[in-house]
Simulated assay, not measured.
Amino acid sequence: MDAMVDKMDATDMTETTETRPSRSEAEAAVRTLISWAGDNPDREGLIDTPSRVVRAYEEFFEGYDEDPSEVLGRTFEEVEGYNDIVMLRDISLESHCEHHMVPILGKAHIAYMPINSVVGISKLARVIEIYAKRLQTQETMTAQIAETIVSALKPAGVAVMIEAKHQCMTTRGIKKPDVATITTQFTGVFKDDPRMEERFFRLVRGDRSY
């Protein structure tokens, strides 16, 4: 059964790659949206907009072209006996809602408890960047980040917290601009030991009095 699922996943990825539209087709789609919105894509102010939008999308969604597991592929075992939390706090995050394709803006906090190896801290931030640069829900992104760190480093535990504002809620629909969404994912010691969970939250708040 697992082999069948793997084969289906591989097939889906191949079909997606083979049917990816060309740049000219993407620009034509933007022209269509401009016309649908009620404007003239051939007027001076909009004539270059389709190409600009496509270039912007290349930046917004560059995470599809990268493998986060490979980013964490190089680890270091020489840690001189270090056996406590490794944490990155206030990592800026820019993503896009998969339901409305509008920005999700916020910050992420991640921590892990190493056992035998650590990884360069910039690599952890890069994992967040890769998943953020895709169409996302915040819940899925939070879980993906935690699962990738667990799989690559096999630590004693991982903690991930994301707090962000969704423009699909702040600028349209219900239009509540001050609402932030908070999601968390805990594994290992952060999930099983309430004291470790509390330490994580204290570090997020900048409280080092634990």
Rank of each mutant, 00 (worst) to 15 (best):
Q138D: 09
I85Y: 04
V119G: 04
T137E: 02
L135H: 09
I91D: 06
E94R: 14
E129H: 00
Q138F: 03
P155A: 10
S92E: 15
L135R: 12
K123H: 03
I85D: 05
E94L: 12
V86N: 01
H96L: 02
H99P: 02
L153V: 09
A125Q: 06
E139I: 04
G81H: 07
R172M: 11
H99S: 11
V79R: 07
D178H: 10
I110D: 03
V150D: 14
Y131C: 02
A111H: 04
F76D: 12
M141D: 00
C97S: 11
H96V: 03
F76T: 15
M169H: 12
Q138E: 00
H109V: 08
N116Q: 14
A146P: 08
I149A: 04
A156H: 14
Q136E: 09
V160S: 05
I149S: 08
S122E: 13
K165H: 06
V119S: 03
M87E: 05
Q167Y: 11
C168K: 10
Y82C: 04
I145N: 06
E129W: 01
H96T: 04
M161F: 02
G157H: 13
Y112H: 01
L105Q: 12
I145G: 00
D84H: 11
V160P: 05
H100Y: 09
C168Q: 07
P68H: 11
V71K: 04
I91S: 03
